[in-house]
Design a protein around this nucleic acid. Sequence first.
RNA 1: GGCCCCAUAGUCUAGCGGUUAGGACGUUGCCCUCUCACGGCAGUAACACGGGUUCGAAUCCCGUUGGGGCUGCCA
Length: 499
Amino acid sequence: MDNIKTRFAPSPTGFLHIGGARTALFSYVYAKHNGGKFALRIEDTDFERSEKRFEEDIMESLKWLSIIPDEEVIFQSDRLEIYRSYIDKLLKEDKAYYCFCSKELLEEDRNKLIAENRKPMYVGRCRELKPGEALLKTPHVIRFRVNRTSGAATGFKDLIRNQHISVNNDEIDDFVLVREDGIPTYNFAVVIDDALTGITHIIRGDDHVSNTPKQIMLYNALGFDAPEFAHVSMILGSDGKRLSKRHGATSVNQYKKDGFLPEALVNYLIRLGWSHGNDEIFSMDEIIKYFDLKNISKSAAIFNTEKLLWLNSHYIKSKDPFVLINLINDIKDDFQTPLNIDIKTAALADSLKSRAKTLVELKQKLDFFVNEDIDYKDEILSEFNFGESDLKFLKSFREFIAGLNDEIFNCGNIDLTDKTGKENSLEILKNSIESIKNKFNDFLSKNNCTMKEKAMTIRLAFTGEKVSPPIYEIIFALGKERCIKRIDKFYDYIINIKR
RNA sequence: GGCCCCAUAGUCUAGCGGUUAGGACGUUGCCCUCUCACGGCAGUAACACGGGUUCGAAUCCCGUUGGGGCUGCCA
């Protein structure tokens, strides 16, 4: 089929959640794989629950994920006139009818049917009514006249299951097309828009399967060709229940704030329900290259944060440290001070990136460096026993640091805005760290001790933590003054606890 | 309750009538090592159940069970 066009049609009643993001992604890559177009339509006909901030969130989140519509975004609230003209057509052709039953009356009908153990459907009170002018001035809705011919059924072929799904017409109510306030309902507006905008393939959540026959009826009644349908299974929480807030983060923007990279989220979501052999790592280009509806799973998938974290750490590891610094600064809260974009920060970020699963974690691991001073926490330090020999070592280690040539710590005023500047500075960095390493090893052998024996003491002194980047890098990044300051502080700390 | 859909390890999945049922996350052990990671190696764990069809079934059909969805003047 040529001129393929897909769409994502969220309602702005909440932040873009990962389930929505996944169907958007599927729709987007399906269109792109086939050289088609992808459209975004905001279904804001529920004025009660729709909010501007959610619209903005949805569009920003999609952009963040690189899911970019090819056309201008459509808002259903701008298209009320269009829907009106089609409802007139249906009314004129007797395919829809006015219903004057009050909500209270409907509720009564419903309770009665349930009590009799029958399907709670509209009883059809107004189905054959021919309302006059006066009656039309009273509150009413417009219902679709479902074909009640005995044995009639309505179905469609689902591309995910590759199977025809059919429902008997008497399972389908005379559903409301236009509400009392004159605003069309979902099932009506969705059909008009998909038909008028030339959508060829509708990829959406499983929860719409039972709406589809209603929509097919509308396509037929309006004389439109029905598009193809592909219903993707839902994403469930760890307990197998429908994903909700109690399962933790569900909105895309929360994942951004929590330090996830869009590549990781896209990679995770595409693999949740879709596969390409045994491959796990996909860039957007690769997804587009390989994507096929045939390889989408029919069954629901449970969201697994562990695997997302693995992918996130994979992508963090592959990033240039300067890029990582920018990304961290991009998600920081307003009250946080941004990281400096310099060679020392980059050096630490580079060695810390394999130790962090999220950008937030990476940021935290840089704290010992970013903060001018550090605190020694008893709950960490109490695990270690320090004696006279440690004090003696610290003294000579202090001398060693103080004796280092200032040149080693100097990385000059290199322009980091261009690529060669960065490369040059990384080269200087490598040399500095190498020479610190050599001098430090000399120092150790002169003092008859090994790295293994002394590393933890030094690490604790410099960072206050049991986990840190390699010692040489810390010395380089902190610089002579801060190293000495921290050695002194640590010395005092030990003396204090020994008393 | 009715209707629709789904069913391979804890999780995501490969498989599309004949495989020692493959990969990944997680997890366990070992190696590497200044810590923790990273990396490398090895291990762990699955065809929901019952009937058919067939020489042969994870794969096809039916049922059972379990799960999910819908059953709105929400989308």
